[in-house]
Structures are given as C-alpha cells and as structure tokens.
Amino acid sequence: MLDAVIGGFKESERIVSDALDAHVGSGTLLLADRGLWGLARWHRLRGQGTHLLWRIERRKARRVQDVLPDGSYLARTEANKHSRAAGKVKVPPALVRVIEYRIDGQADVVRLITSLLDHEKYPAAELAALYARRWETEPVFDEIKTHQRGRPVLRSQTPDGVRREVYAHLIVHHATRDLLNEAARILQSTAERTSFTRALHVVRRTVISPSGFSPLGPQT
C-alpha cells in the first residue's frame, strides 16, 4: 500500500480515485477493475504516459480492427450511445487491445483492455497472468481490516479523527510490511512466505516493551 485517498460515503470511488492520478505517469502500468472504467479517464492517464491494463464489461470495445496472432485483438472503444445522442461527447474514441480468457472451472469470460498494443513484446498470456496478481491486494486489505485493526469500527468520532486513524493504520501496515521485506532479504527468502500476523505481534511486543522505546526520550 503506497497511497490512499479518503472520501465521503456518498462519493463514487470512480471520482475519489481521480486524486491518485498524480502518483502514476510515464513508465507506470496501472491495473484496475471494471468499476473504474471511463473513456475520459483512459485518455487522461494515457496523456500522462501511463500504460493501462483494465478489466472491462463485455459490451465495451466490440468494434474489432485486427486479430493478433496470440488471440488478442485490436478494437475501438468510444463513448456510449446515450452520450452521443445527447450531444455530450467530447472524448475521442480510443484504440485498445482486448484480451479474453476463462479461469478454470468458471463460465464467465474475463475481458481485459490494455494500451500495450504490441503482442510480441507483451504477450496476452503474460498480461492475463499479471492481471490475476491484482487480486493479491485483497489479503492486504484483510491484514489491515481484520488482523491489525482488531475492531469492527474505528474509534474516532469525528471526520478528521477518522481520516487520521485510517492513515495511521496505513502507515503502521506499510512499516510492518517494510520490516517483513527486510527480514526476507536477510534470510534470502520472500515476504510472501512470511506471516504478517506474527510480524505484527512482534512489532506490538516491541513497542509496548519498556526497552523498546522511551516516551520521555533520551535521559541526560
């Protein structure tokens, strides 16, 4: 977890997430679920030099331009027909590459679009495998919400207090994960093979230990 943005319960995550655009740019590959799709957002991020690999609904990007040797295809996506009929279209169409596949045992087709159009440099199978790793963010949310927080609700009773508490949890999680990465490096292992819960217990014991740190600072 490198950054986060907090909004009100009435605010759409699609709108709130726009605040994170400043943290991506040239050389970044941004993965996102289908709920964040937007043609204007696509153009804006591409204008920053960001490459995109997003899941998308099946009815999007259906105008096939060219079928590629790896099974993916180039297609044109544009604003929906309701926007066009109302004369509100200000965003040009975009040429995207579509990758479709099924997960074993599931009937639904996973449909991705990407700005990486070169099928030789970026094979469809590799991009599909990379997108599957996006779900590794879910255990991170579980670490923070279930194991670290330890309470069903936040303690703060004010909006500012809630924001501070959320960011405090994110900072603690980042520091704990950084500790795990360092331990894995020393042991020549990987952080994925270490237990976040055990590391969190170690951190808590160290923090509350009198020898861990002194709230009074150094004695003179």
Rank of each mutant, 00 (worst) to 15 (best):
A4Q: 12
V5D: 04
K10W: 09
E11S: 11
R14F: 06
I15W: 04
D18N: 14
S26N: 06
S26E: 00
T28G: 06
G35N: 12
G35R: 01
W42D: 00
H43G: 05
R44I: 07
R44L: 07
W54M: 04
W54P: 02
I56C: 14
R59K: 14
R63H: 15
V64P: 08
Q65H: 13
Q65R: 15
D66P: 00
G71C: 12
A79V: 13
A79G: 13
N80D: 15
K81I: 10
S83M: 10
R84K: 15
A86T: 08
G87I: 02
A94R: 08
V98N: 05
I99A: 06
R102S: 09
I103Y: 06
D104A: 15
V109A: 08
R111P: 12
I113E: 04
S115M: 09
S115Q: 11
L117M: 08
D118L: 05
P123K: 00
L127K: 05
L127F: 04
A128T: 04
A129P: 05
Y131W: 03
Y131H: 01
R133Y: 00
R133G: 01
W135T: 12
W135Q: 12
E136P: 01
T137Y: 02
T137F: 05
E138N: 04
E138I: 06
V140C: 14
K145W: 07
K145E: 11
K145N: 10
T146N: 14
R151I: 01
R151P: 06
V153Y: 12
S156F: 05
P159I: 03
D160S: 15
T176K: 13
L179C: 06
N181V: 07
E182T: 01
A183P: 01
A184F: 00
R185S: 12
I186C: 03
S189P: 08
R193L: 12
L200A: 05
H201R: 13
V203F: 07
S211D: 15
S211N: 13
F213M: 10
